[in-house]
Simulated scan of single mutants.
Amino acid sequence: MKTALRTTTKTGTFAQALEDFKQITKVGLAVSVVFSSVAGYFLGAETIDYKVLLLLMIGGYFMVGASNAYNQIIERDLDALMKRTMNRPVPSGRMSVNTAFIIATVCAVLGIVILYMVNPKTAMFGAISIFLYTSVYTPLKTKTPLSVFVGAFPGAIPFMLGWVAATNTFGIEPGTLFMIQFFWQFPHFWAIGWLLYDDYKKAGYYMLPTGKKDSATALQVIMYTIWMIIVSVFPVTGLTGRLHLSVTGAVIVALLGVGMLYFAIRLYHEKDNAAARKLMLASVAYITFVQIVYVADKFIGGY
């Protein structure tokens, strides 16, 4: 009986530790970032090197995991004030700050080393992403709505990172991929900021551009969505080097963008959490399907 109890306790402890690791590295976000990087790799690669692809995926996960873990250490007192985050490992007390710091540092070192094995430029951009997210974006969140602008830089790196991993070069092609995800982040995060406004307010976060759930914020959401659509279809012009998009691909991407713009306009008219939630979900669907369309267009189009 005692042996069975000890086995159950150990199993329960391991399961909790694994769950805490997933939470502190934000496994859902990390996987979405890895997905973006893989899409960028397929776009840049002339031939698929599965070893490089695996290193990119593992290194990318550790890179994002490190950023998220450091972020949760820095924001632990504020996380404890919000319903959405109070049960995270550090603010809830399940994980000590020292343990979280060790996890974050190990992830950062592993992430950069593994990405360096891909090529030095990939490791450099990974390190820049961690630095900007933890040392610039995180401290600014309680000081200015411009934090979203700053946070859009590390957030836009993954799609670009895949191309750099495949080619070891940085030019117009990865720059375009960067800009697509850069402009996308504004309507995405402002939709989240609108939806979680009251919870963010408890911790002193003001994520909306005007600091309020008003028409001016909703109008900026529309403007950035339009810029996102323009940048997303721009490769159809043939002015983005090896990064191509067929007319058919451009039409599909444009239609996806118009769909997201519809929800942005709905937010402007309705100004409620239901509209913000729909826009947030539409934005997640948009970036996922756009990346799929780009990759499919390359291989189906024979570029």
Rank of each mutant, 00 (worst) to 15 (best):
K2E: 15
F14C: 12
L18G: 15
D20Q: 13
F21E: 05
V27A: 14
A30R: 01
G40Q: 02
G40C: 09
L54I: 15
L54K: 09
L55D: 07
Y61I: 02
F62A: 03
V64D: 00
S67E: 05
N68Y: 01
L78G: 05
A80C: 14
M82L: 12
M82W: 05
M86E: 13
R88E: 04
P91T: 07
S92P: 08
R94H: 15
T99R: 08
F101V: 06
F101K: 09
T105E: 07
V109L: 12
L110D: 10
I114V: 14
M124C: 06
I128A: 15
S129P: 04
T134P: 04
S135R: 13
K141A: 10
T142W: 01
P145H: 09
A152D: 08
F153Q: 04
F153K: 06
G155S: 12
A156Q: 05
M160K: 02
A166Q: 02
N168L: 04
P174I: 09
G175C: 12
Q181D: 08
F183R: 01
H188G: 03
L208Y: 02
S215A: 14
A218N: 06
A218G: 10
Y224C: 01
I226Q: 04
M228H: 04
I229C: 06
I230G: 09
V231C: 10
V236N: 04
G241N: 06
V247F: 14
T248R: 14
T248H: 11
T248V: 15
G249C: 07
V251R: 07
A254Q: 03
M260P: 00
F263Q: 01
A264W: 00
I265P: 02
E270I: 06
E270M: 10
A274K: 13
A275M: 08
R277I: 02
K278I: 06
M280W: 02
A285Y: 14
Y286E: 01
I287P: 00
G301T: 07
Y303I: 13
